[in-house]
């Protein structure tokens, strides 16, 4: 086909895709809804949820995981648009890191050393590394689907950031159930669960986000 003909054809095609931002706004709630459904089928909210909310430890889990999700979503929203620098917004990752570091410093500074290891090992680490990725999986799927409307020049990186966002949200959801509250536990086992989703996002993203 001649380039002139191609251009005439392209100009006649007036169907426009949804912008990636809109697609995320539409699909992310759907992914979250599926995750909440999975939660309600397989898990329950910890019985001491309200009293624990008054301690620093449970709010800390939400602060770390949700700020991670927000930071990752901000980076995603820029990675899907060509020619837009995402470096400057990546600074947002300092928030979850800082909050978690603060929590760990509090544990190491305020609690006796013999409680550190039991706190890190926790009681239900195996459940955590399964359920964090499981809660995050529908969210990751929704994000990747929405991001296909975008044009990430680095599909693997964009997929990894989607995995981080999904991991953060999945972990926040699991935190409603999980009774292991030490920031050392959060760093280790939530970290592993979120890292698994991030790796999955990178691998899948490389395939499905190329354009």
């Amino acid at each position: 086909m001649r380039t002139d003909d191609l251009i005439r054809g392209l100009a006649a095609d007036d169907k426009r895709e949804t912008s990636p931002g809109w697609a995320v706004a539409l699909l992310l709630p759907a992914g979250l809804a599926v995750a909440v459904l999975l939660f309600s089928l397989m898990l329950r909210i910890r019985p001491d949820f309200l009293p624990m909310l008054a301690t620093p430890w449970l709010p800390l889990k939400f602060a770390v995981t949700l700020s991670l999700a927000v930071a990752a979503l901000l980076v995603v929203s820029r990675l899907v648009r060509p020619g837009v620098r995402s470096g400057p917004v990546a600074i947002g990752f300092l928030v979850p890191c800082g909050v978690l570091a603060l929590g760990i410093a509090a544990v190491l500074g305020l609690t006796p050393p013999e409680t550190w290891m039991p706190g890190l090992v926790g009681h239900y680490a195996r459940y955590c590394v399964v359920f964090v990725p499981l809660m995050g999986a529908p969210i990751l799927a929704a994000l990747l689907l929405a991001m296909r409307k975008g044009a990430p020049t680095r599909p693997g990186l964009a997929g990894a950031c989607a995995g981080l966002a999904a991991g953060g949200l999945g972990a926040a959801l699991y935190a409603f159930h999980c009774t292991d509250d030490s920031p050392l536990f959060v760093l280790t086992w939530y970290g592993i669960g979120i890292a698994a989703l991030t790796a999955a996002g990178a691998l899948i993203g490389r395939r499905v986000l190329a354009w």
Binding site: L6, L10, E17, S19, G150, A151, W211
Partner: peptide, 11 residues
């Protein structure tokens, strides 16, 4: 040109 067309909504 195809990519510019199909991804123009990302600008």
């Amino acid at each position: 040109l195809l990519a510019i067309h199909l991804k123009r909504h990302t600008w």
